[in-house]
Amino acid sequence: MTTTVHRESTAQRLLRSSDQLSYDPVSEVDWETPLDPGHHGMSPEWSSLYGTAYWDGMPEEQRRELTRHESASIASTGIWFEMILQQMVLRDFYAKDPTDPAFQWALTEIADECRHSIMFARGAAKLGAPAYVPKRSTVELGRVFAAVASGEAAYASILVAEEVLDVMQRDWMRDERVAPFVRTITNIHVVEESRHMAFARDETRERLAGAGRLRRGVDAVVVAAAAYMIVTSMWSPQVYANAGLDTRRAVREARANEHHKALLRSSCAGLMEFLGSCGLLTRPALWFYRRANLI
């Protein structure tokens, strides 16, 4: 099967899937029922402090408060990167054939991301959290990345963000300790992002076909740097103060938390295997992944 035919076939399959199984968060998520403070905002095992001495000494009420803020921080990072994603995809398909199923799928994916961002924003607000925006330097780097990243580097970076969220949210959506509306949000995101990940994998593979060593080397570093920015922005240090914790101690213990590092590494095992098969796990790239505790 030629690249063009395969691409069209994949896009048509994803369009059919989207037509058959998509959600409207406005009606699917229970936005009206008040937040029950007896629920976590995420599976507690995914908290950056779970397994530390600080966590062990916290009352259960404060643990739940912390996970709600952490969930909102991760959602805010998701919104930030989804906005970057939309810019990259729009730029990639600008002025291309609108009758191409891949073009139509790209617009469908952008529509999904818009709904997801609104859903995450409303979810964070319902969790009682403030806006958690990445630090200024990361925001500016993201602005540059959105403007210049293209081809396989753009799609592999999209895949990194989606894969990390996918694994943790699969745990949350099955966890009865997590607020029901958060479980619904994560279920919607997991189902619809599975299509986005399939497209990103295909685009990455096909655009790398025939790429030389230099091009792969540059792509590898760009993708790894994007992964570092995304993952290190997920847990804002502000969540600790907003949960009533000593920020300095919390940051120190979170950075040394081997349980959390192990979870991140396990969540990225499949992703790293894929990047390795594409020749995108070079020595310089590995430096970024290790710094982000992804490998």
Rank of each mutant, 00 (worst) to 15 (best):
L49S: 08
G128S: 02
E253S: 10
I110P: 14
A53K: 15
V190H: 06
F81L: 10
L15C: 09
A256L: 10
S73L: 06
I230P: 00
P59H: 04
W80F: 15
R63H: 02
D166H: 13
Y155I: 03
F199H: 14
A153G: 08
R13I: 00
G123Y: 01
D112E: 15
L165E: 06
D92G: 06
P284M: 15
A11Q: 14
Y23A: 00
P180H: 02
S157G: 13
V231Q: 12
A161P: 05
T2D: 15
L294P: 08
D112P: 06
A209M: 07
L214W: 11
R68H: 05
R91K: 14
R265T: 08
A226M: 13
L245E: 09
R248D: 15
A149H: 10
T99Y: 09
E61Q: 12
P237G: 09
E162W: 03
A106S: 15
R213F: 11
V164I: 14
V26Y: 06
P284E: 11
Q62H: 10
L264A: 05
Y23L: 00
D219H: 13
R255V: 04
S9G: 12
T138M: 07
A226S: 15
A131Y: 02
I188M: 04
T184I: 00
D36N: 15
T247L: 04
S266C: 00
L49C: 03
W287N: 06
F274P: 10
Y228V: 00
C114G: 12
H189E: 00
A95Y: 07
P130D: 07
M119W: 00
L35K: 02
T33W: 04
G142D: 08
M1F: 06
W105A: 03
A211Q: 12
T3V: 11
W80M: 03
R207G: 02
S157K: 07
Y155E: 13
R136D: 11
D97I: 03
V218L: 15
A254G: 12
S71P: 01
Y155Q: 08
L159K: 03
V239T: 10
E45S: 12
A125Q: 07
V160Q: 06
S117F: 00
M272K: 08
N187D: 08
D112W: 01
P180M: 02
P101V: 06
